[in-house]
């Protein structure tokens, strides 16, 4: 199993780089995950997406509908792909510490 070390804490990841225990997430973990995604710096726009996803997940235990993510952040899907090149599910959700989505997605 791959893992990343953030501030001395070893955080386990699955094969696709999603963290296994979403409770271990914090802003430094987000930065480390973003670096793995090839995002060198998390801007305010990145944080807007990450925080929205994170809060939605804490409330509902799942990611929001992509259309809702776009509406609530005010970003188009294209813009989200610019911010997170792997896309909303495999990029943004990963940085926000959500588990990998399953099913026909």
């Amino acid at each position: 199993m791959p893992s990343i070390n953030v501030n001395g804490v070893e955080i386990e990841q699955d094969e696709d780089g999603f963290i296994v225990d979403p409770n271990l997430w914090n802003e430094d973990v987000a930065k480390a995950l973003a670096a793995q995604e090839g995002i060198s710096e998390l801007t305010d726009e990145h944080w807007k997406v990450v925080n929205y996803l994170r809060n939605y997940y804490l409330q509902f235990q799942i990611a929001p509908m992509i259309r809702k993510l776009c509406k609530e952040t005010g970003f188009s899907l294209k813009k989200i792909y610019e911010l997170f090149p792997s896309g909303p599910a495999k990029g943004a959700c990963k940085v926000a510490g959500l588990p990998k989505p399953t099913g026909c997605v």
Partner: peptide, 21 residues
Amino acid sequence: GNHTGLTKPAIVDTLEFLSEE
């Protein structure tokens, strides 16, 4: 009860959002 792991609150929230849409 579903493949993506939707909880009931998430189901209701998404459907309310779609009503508005």
